[in-house]
Design a protein around this nucleic acid. Structure first.
Lengths: 245, 245
DNA sequence: CTAACCTTTTTCCAACTGGTCAAAATTCTT
DNA sequence: AAGAATTTTGACCAGTTGGAAAAAGGTTAG
């Protein structure tokens, strides 16, 4: 049983690729139509990161409407107007977080390789998902919060990108089933159940810790969970040949 | 495969046993110390129900902080001061909802019978949990929202009542494992995974529907889910004899 | 050094928030 | 039907909220 390898324990925001949209501080009117984006100074990048960090803290707990700019500004250690200088609107911060999140969030599933060995592929997918719950609980909660509200800000991404990805991977799973390499079940619900069980450890963390009690709620709980879930899903997915009930 | 039996589709609040605490409209100063509770008029009961219904709608989506009294009042079809006449504080409404919820929420687990047949017991527990996700999605989301925020309002109930119940049922499961009636696994994580997978269908409903696509997102998805989950957990729990790896 | 730019702070505001209060309208009791 | 009790309403309030404006403070290139 390979132990889950810990990533850096640091609470870093997920990859901050390119500056994405907007958040352009008050500059000159930007001549013509094609306003050259202008590469972002060091300070701008740093401050934006600090803000996004703070916002993740706040949004992931209270959701969009339940969070206030003042609160985020305080966590970020700056004044509200200063924060608004970098992100003119509350929504801008949120959008940035949530779109970046979505990309990263689906990485593990994207990595599921049709040409790989089915059992290890699935097993490592599960392991990676638990690692994410452990290492990025705030991101998980941010996502959960958005879902609970009906995903108002990302519904179209869900309906297109996410759906396409899942459709694709569901086909991969079905291929494995057809080849008798894994037991036959509903690939969609299989994926849902992996999401549900792994993310549960981030989203319902309080509950998990409370129920496990003082003695078992150390960081080891993630390894226990990993072990348990591997066992569960392996049992559910193994035993090929067993075609249609 | 017994089909899940539909309960009334009506959107009723969970059982409203006794008037619980407070919510006493402005009355006479109530003589002495032992203010006789006075049995609640018909109007009071009706209005409170309407308010709780509306509040459930709102709180379950936006969480406590993200919801406003005005919003709830509007959904309830009454003026804010009128609403406040029945529940003097926002928190009162929320507390009522969430404590009632907790009781109901744990019913299925409570029903897990140590003297019953293990496999059917577990199977029917799962079925009941899915039915709840289907019939009481708002309650599920209210609970999820509370968890995401660290369960500030019910942390002590979680740490005591919930923990005790789970401890008790975990022992039941362990008993079955010792008797070789079900496969050996971690009973706590088994319970967590049942919670996670079933509640997922209420909490992440948008996602589930979006991914399943237009053709499969009818009400039938709950039956598919039930079927899938029974299969998954039966595989994970069956095969006794298979002691320690 | 200084002009042009970038960053931060101060001040301000209108809309919204949870909640109060007294008067008015309704319902219940006798 | 009168009087008491309950329910509803409208006006109001102090604190918070998201955000605008502009002045003040820093940086940096020439």
């Amino acid at each position: 049983m390979p132990p889950i390898k810990m990533k850096n324990g640091k609470a870093a925001t997920l990859p901050k690729h390119a500056a994405a949209e907007g958040a352009k501080p008050a500059s000159k009117p930007a001549k013509g139509r094609t306003a050259k984006p202008r590469p972002l100074t060091r300070i701008q990048r740093e401050k934006q990161d600090i803000i996004l960090e703070a916002a993740l803290d706040v949004f992931s707990v209270y959701g969009f409407r339940g969070s206030t700019i003042d609160q985020i500004a305080e966590v970020a250690g700056m004044s509200k107007p200063n924060l608004l200088y970098y992100f003119p609107r509350k929504e801008d911060i949120h959008r940035r977080l949530i779109t970046e999140l979505l990309t990263t969030w689906l990485e593990p599933l994207r990595a599921l390789d049709a040409d790989g060995d089915p059992i290890p592929e699935i097993r490592s997918y599960i392991r990676r998902k638990i690692e994410m719950a452990r290492d990025y609980p705030r991101e998980s909660r941010l996502f959960a919060n958005e879902m609970l509200q009906g995903a108002p800000h990302i519904i179209d991404m869900i309906e297109v990108d996410l759906k396409n990805l899942v459709d694709e991977k569901a086909k991969v799973l079905e291929g494995w089933m057809d080849a008798g390499k894994i037991a036959r079940t509903d690939p969609y619900h299989l994926i849902f159940s992996i999401w549900a069980t792994t993310q549960h450890y981030a989203d319902f963390d309080v509950q998990v810790r409370a129920v496990l009690g003082k003695d078992r709620n150390g960081e080891g709980r993630f390894e226990d969970a990993a072990r348990y879930l591997e066992q569960l899903f392996m049992a559910g997915v193994l035993s090929p040949r067993k075609k249609g009930a």
